[in-house]
Structures are given as structure tokens and as C-alpha cells.
Amino acid sequence: MDYVFYILAIWIVGSGLLAILQRNLVHCAVALIAFFAGIAGIFFSLHAEFLGAIQVVVYVGAIAVLILFAIMLTRHVTGEEEVSPFSRHAIWGWIASAAVLCVLLYSLDKQMFAISAEPSQITMLDIGNAMMQRYAVPFEVISLLLTAALVGAVVIALEEPRERK
């Protein structure tokens, strides 16, 4: 089953790179959808089916569409960007992220993790119970946050009232 992981990894890295490198914003968004789907695949391969489903619903379904809408609302529909991410001004950005990657990989290389004997398995029922009991308060807080974000987003994006100077 190893090859599943490698295929997914290549898929994710490839679509992720495409998503940030293309000049056409709409193409970027399409690559991003592929990227999110790949992450969902990773969750499934880790036997976190519920998370995988959520990933599909929230990211592939909602956030990707939101981003597409934002692109269309703020650009022409074709969404060409004038500046390429390879231009001179971006060089320091590349250097910085490459440096961070080196640091991360180096530390991963040095660190050994104890591997538990058997991988953990939980079911939807466990998640539901946990949400209603142990994580009830964070659950409520997060729902409050989502409500606030919803209201906030509407308020922010609303057309400002015509000048009342």
C-alpha cells in the first residue's frame, strides 16, 4: 500500500506548486482544488475517514468556491496577473521558504519518533461522543466563532452606505 502514499504525495506537491506558480488565478484555483482533494486522500490513507470527508466538504466544496468567487469579484474573469512569481522582487521569498524547508527537514532527520505498536482506530461514534462530552466547550466556542465569522464576513463585504459626508 506504500505506492498510494507516494502517488498522493507527488499529486499534492505537484498540484500545490502549480497552485502557487501559475500566473492565471483561475488556473491556480483549479490546481488548489486538486491539492485539497489530495490532502483528503492523505486523511483517508491515515484512516481518518471523517476528517477526509470534512476536508472534501469544507475545502474542496466551500473554500475553493469562495476563492474562485473572490477571484472573479476582484479581477477580470480570466484573472491574469501582471507579475510572475519568478520576478526579481520575489527572490527573497523563495530564499526564505527554502531556508525554512531546509531547517524543517534537517530537524526531522535528527528526530526519531517512537512508533506505537498498533495504529489507533476511532469511529464516527467516538468522534460524536467526544464532541458532545469532552470537547463540548471547544465545540460550542468554535460554533460561536463560525457564527461571528459569518456575521462579520457579511458586514465587512456589505456595500458601504453611500457617502453621508
Binding site: G16, A29, L32, I42, I67, V83, A90, G93, L101
Partner: peptide
């Protein structure tokens, strides 16, 4: 490792793109 690579791709996106939407991506 995969997560580290994805993280850095995202970071690169944030740092190099000029369009704020792509920064969010």
C-alpha cells in the same frame, strides 16, 4: 516530510505572490 514540503510551498506562495487572494491560498 510531506507536511514540511507542503508547508514550505504554502509559505513560498504567501511570500512571493502579490495578489492577496493568492496569499490567502
Amino acid at each position: 516530510v510531506l507536511a514540511a514540503v507542503v508547508f514550505c510551498i504554502g509559505l513560498a506562495g504567501v511570500l512571493t505572490r502579490r495578489n492577496a487572494i493568492m496569499v490567502l491560498v
